[in-house]
Write a protein that binds this DNA or RNA. Structure first.
Lengths: 353, 353
DNA sequence: CTGAAAGCGCTTACAG
DNA sequence: CTGAAAGCGCTTACAG
C-alpha cells in the first residue's frame, strides 16, 4: 500500500526475473546456465570452478549467464563428487566464556577470508556433549579445530586420523596445535609476586580434564620452586565466576597471600567473594588470572593477568587447518604464541603474615 | 613405544576394523551397510531415515550392520535429493560484542537439540560484509536468523522470499522476528531517572542502520515527553566502548544530568571517559545502558541497565526457524520478550544544575 | 578448449 | 515390507 515494492513488475528484482528462466522454477543450476550460454554443463562447471581452463570468451558468456540467472553454486552438490565441503568446524567448551570470543572471531575471519564456512559447536564443558557435537558435525566439515577440548588424547588422536584436526590449548602427540608460551608469562607473574613479597601463593585449578590447567600449574610449580616460594594447588574447580567463588574458602584456609586462578573468570569470582567478605584486594589478598578477557579491565581493582593472544590463536588454527586441507599456501609459523603479564590493580604487596 | 596403541591388532578401535569392510576403503556408505545386512540400499535408507517403515527385525539387522561399520550418514549426500541441509545460519553484527554471546548460545542449543548444525557468520557491522557473508552461507542452510542486521528492509524481505528468515532485534513487514518489549523497560528507566530528579537526559544513539537504536530512541522520546523531561539524541555512534568514549564530549556539552546509551558497551565507554575526566558517576553524571551484558555488573559503579533476554531470543529465533522449515512441532509464543530495569550504582540523584 | 558420460551417496516414487 | 530405478547438482577423467 504505502511505498514501493509489492509490484514485481518491470523493475522486479533480479531474483524474480531470473527465476523464470530456470528449469525447475527453483534456483538456477549449471544446466540453466549452460542452456543460456549455449554450452555443455561441464564447461560451466569448469569456467566457474577453476579459472583459465576455458576460453576467455566462453567464460565471459558463462559468467554473464550465471549473473543473469543469479546462479549460486550448490555447495552440497559440489561436495558430493569432491568430498570437500569448504566448511570447517570449531568446537568450544563454553561459548559463554569470554575467552572463546577471541578464538571464534579469529577463526571466523580466517575461514571466511578463505571462502570457507565456519560451523560452530559447543561442548558445554562436558566430554559427553563434546563427543556428540563432534559426531554431528564431523561428516559435514573438511576439518575441525578443537579449542580447549575435554576429550581424551586417544579420542583426539583417533579423530585426527579421520579428518584434519588442529588443537588450541591442548597438546597431543602427532596432532598440530596452537599453544601459548605459558612459561614466559608464568615466570613473569611469579617474579612479580615475588617482588611484592609474597612467600606463599595458591593456584586455583580448572577442571580435571583441562590440559591447560595442568600446564599452567606445572609452569607455576617450576617458577615457584626456583624462587623458593611456597605454592599449593586448590581444585579442581569449574572454570567460571562461580567456580572462583566456591574456591574462596579453601583459598583463605591455605593462608596464601596471593591467588592465581586458572582463568580470569575464576579470578573475578575470587575477587567478588573477597569483597563479599570484606577482604581487601590487593591489601589483604592479591589475585591474578589468565587470558585477559573482556571484563578483566573493568572490574575494580582491575585484574592482573597473563594475557593470551586469543584472536591470533583462532586465526592460526584455521590457517593450519586450511593448509592441511590444501586450501592455502600460507607459510605457517608454528612458534608458541607470546604471552604477556599485564599488571593491574589486583596484585600488591603481600599482607604481613 | 610406551603404552598401548599403535598396534592396530586384535583390539584395534572400531573405526579401523570397520574400514576394512568398506567398498572404497573410505568411510562406510549405505551400500556397505546394505551388503553387510543383506538388504537393498534403499531399505537401509528407510530404516535409518524414518523409523517404523521397515520391519523390526530388518531394522535391527541394519542398525547392527551400521554400528559395526561405524556408518555415519553423509549430510551432503542426503541434502542433494531432499534439498534440506539440516543446517541453520546465524549472522551477527559483531561476534565480539558480549551482547551476541547470549544469542549465539541460545541459538546453538536450540539447533543442536533439534539435530541441526549452526553455521555462524559475522558481518562486522558493515552492510557490505553482511551481504557477502549471507551470500556465502545461504545455499548451504535451510534458513537463517539475522541478529541485529544492518541490511535494508528491502534486502531482508527479498532474502525472506528465498529461504526462511527470522529476525532478532529488527522488524520487517512479513518477516517473523523476535523482539523485546522495549517500551516497558524504557518506561521504567525513565521513571527511575525522573524520581532521581533528572530533568534533562541524553540518549547516545547507536549506528545509523540500527533498527533497535531507533526503536529505543522512539520509546525514550515517548516516555520523556509524558514526564516533561527534556531529552536529546546524540549520535550516531559506534556501538562499542570507544563509541561511548567518543560521544562523551558532546554528552557533557548537552548539560544532561543523565546519559542513556544505546547499549551497555557504550555506557561503559562513557563511564571510563568520565573517570578519566575526574567526573563522578553517579554524583555528577548518571549513566544507563541496555542489554545487561557480561561486564556491566563488574564495572564500578555497576551499571544500571535495561536487561534483555538474549539467550531466550536466540532460542526462540531458531525455534521459529525450525517450525518454518518443518522440523519442529513446538508451539511458538510470539509475544515480546520481557525486559527488566536493573538498577545498580551508575544512576543516582541528579546533580544540582 | 569443449562435450558426453559416469559417478559421488543419498531419497523417493513406483512396483510388487 | 522391500527392491530396482531414477534423480538431486555437481566434478572429472576420457575423448575428440
Amino acid at each position: 500500500m504505502s511505498g514501493p515494492g509489492r509490484q514485481g513488475g518491470a523493475d522486479a528484482p533480479e531474483g524474480a526475473s531470473a527465476r523464470r528462466r530456470t528449469r525447475s522454477g527453483g534456483p538456477a543450476t549449471i544446466y540453466d546456465v549452460a542452456d543460456l550460454a549455449g554450452v555443455n554443463p561441464s564447461t560451466v562447471s569448469r569456467a566457474l570452478g577453476k579459472p583459465g581452463r576455458v576460453s576467455a570468451k566462453t567464460e565471459a558468456r558463462i559468467r554473464a549467464a550465471a549473473a543473469e540467472l543469479d546462479f549460486r553454486m550448490n555447495p552440497m552438490a559440489r561436495a558430493l563428487p569432491t568430498g570437500r565441503t569448504n566448511t570447517l568446524g570449531l568446537v568450544v567448551a563454553d561459548i559463554t566464556n569470554p575467552m572463546v570470543f577471541g578464538v571464534v572471531r579469529g577463526a571466523e575471519q580466517a575461514a571466511s577470508q578463505a571462502g570457507f564456512t565456519l560451523v560452530i559447536a559447543e561442548s558445554q564443558e562436558s566430554g559427553e556433549a563434546e563427543a556428540t557435537a563432534i559426531e554431528r558435525i564431523l561428516p559435514g566439515v573438511d576439518g575441525m579445530v578443537l579449542a580447549t577440548t575435554r576429550l581424551s588424547s586417544e579420542r583426539i588422536a583417533q579423530l585426527a586420523g579421520q579428518k584434519p584436526v588442529v588443537l588450541i590449548n591442548r597438546a597431543v602427540d602427532g596432532v598440530p596445535s596452537v599453544l601459548p608460551d605459558v612459561d614466559t608469562g608464568v615466570r613473569d607473574l611469579v617474579a612479580h609476586l615475588d617482588e611484592l613479597g609474597h612467600r606463599t601463593v595458591a593456584f586455583l585449578a580448572g577442571p580435571t580434564a583441562s590440559w591447560m590447567s595442568e600446564r599452567r600449574w606445572a609452569a607455576l610449580l617450576d617458577a615457584a620452586e626456583q624462587r623458593g616460594i611456597a605454592i599449593v594447588e586448590i581444585g579442581p574447580n569449574a572454570p567460571t565466576i562461580d567456580g572462583g567463588r566456591e574456591a574462596y574458602r579453601r583459598l583463605r584456609a591455605s593462608h596464601a597471600t596471593a591467588a592465581i586462578a586458572y582463568n580470569d573468570l575464576m579470578a573475578i569470582g575470587v575477587m567478588q567473594e573477597a569483597a563479599a567478605h570484606g577482604v581487601d584486594v590487593p591489601g589483604e589478598l592479591s589475585v591474578a588470572g589468565f587470558d585477559d578477557i573482556f571484563g578483566s579491565e573493568l572490574i575494580v581493582p582491575a585484574l592482573t593477568t597473563v594475557r593470551a593472544q586469543l584472536v591470533l590463536a583462532g586465526e592460526r588454527a584455521v590457517g593450519q587447518l586450511l593448509a592441511m586441507v590444501g586450501a592455502n599456501g600460507h607459510d605457517l609459523p608454528d612458534d608458541l604464541l607470546a604471552t604477556t603479564l599485564v599488571v593491574r590493580g589486583s596484585t600488591g604487596p603481600a599482607a604481613s603474615a
